[in-house]
């Protein structure tokens, strides 16, 4: 459905007279109703993929298509949920959701009806008239999700939507997002730097290398949701993703040069490896 073919993205800094390659020969296809997570270290071009798919910019080389049609500029077909808080501060939660519908040319009554429906859906019933500054970070992102879903996009592009939130809120929102997604299984591309988040959400994880971003490996996850972080399958997968992550993206100053996966320097997320049934640790 959403297809990237040999996509390159380079940025130039005219003043410094330098260019950097953010994405290098990235090709993948997201199928209808698939939930794909793109994972990679910071600065690997994850967000560039979202911005390219959204149409905020064009690829330097290669082609991006949605249902065979090349993407030229932004469109409500491809709804984006941004990392930053993007609600207009002078509009209430309801008005923010209504605004997208107003742009789509819906009538006033429809705007109110649909906006209320989606605010209810994300669990913000009763917050219609709250202004963004009165909402918590998690609630703001929920309004942003409602605003994007109300546009009924073909693809939902989520650019680290919960990374500005604390861990507990993020976990809770991940679960709520899955609940929403199970309703109509919209096609989702979800960018995150958090491996656990990706494993709990995705049908497929695409792991990117550090800059220049290339596809390091893909992981298919067939485990039914909701997934327990303590299940063998998830632990095995977590280790596998992490091992690949360390292969490509471990800091250059890693202590043991002979050992590509320094076993004494375990990432914080990897502490759950010490599970009785886990053979590898």
């Amino acid at each position: 459905m959403l297809k990237l073919e040999h996509v390159y993205k380079a940025y130039v800094d005219r003043l410094a007279g330098k260019g950097v390659v953010a994405l290098q020969d990235v090709s993948f296809e997201v199928r209808r109703n698939e939930f794909v997570c793109i994972v990679g270290p910071s600065g690997c071009g994850k967000s560039s993929i979202i911005h390219l798919a959204a149409g905020f910019m064009g690829p330097t080389r290669g082609r991006i298509t949605l249902d065979g049609e090349e993407i030229r500029g932004p469109s409500p077909d491809r709804g984006v949920v941004f990392q930053e808080f993007s609600l207009l501060p002078w509009k209430s939660a309801l008005e923010n959701v209504m605004w997208g519908l107003e742009i789509r040319g819906r009538s006033r009554q429809e705007q109110v009806r649909i906006a209320k429906e989606y605010l209810d859906l994300v669990g913000l019933k009763g917050f219609d008239h709250a202004r963004p500054h009165e909402l918590s970070g998690g609630m703001k992102q929920k309004v942003a999700i409602a605003r994007t879903l109300a546009l009924d996009p073909a693809v939902l592009l989520m650019d680290e939507p919960f990374s500005n939130l604390d861990e507990q809120t993020r976990n809770r929102l991940d679960i709520e997002l899955l609940g929403l997604w199970e309703r109509d299984r919209k096609t989702v591309v979800f960018v995150t730097h958090c491996i656990e988040e990706a494993i709990s959400l995705a049908d497929r994880i695409i792991l990117l290398t550090a800059r220049p971003g290339r596809i390091q490996k893909e992981f298919r996850i067939d485990t039914p949701r909701p997934r327990s972080i303590f299940s063998d399958e998830v632990i095995r997968l977590h280790q596998e993703v992490l091992a690949n992550f360390m292969l490509c993206c471990a800091p250059q100053t890693a202590p043991a040069a002979s050992d590509p996966i320094p076993r004494d320097r375990v990432l914080p997320g990897a502490t759950r490896n010490h599970h009785p049934t886990s053979k590898e640790s």
Partner: peptide, 9 residues
């Protein structure tokens, strides 16, 4: 804000 507006068309 501008990107969000453009995304919504």
């Amino acid at each position: 804000y501008l990107r969000a507006a453009r995304m919504m068309g």
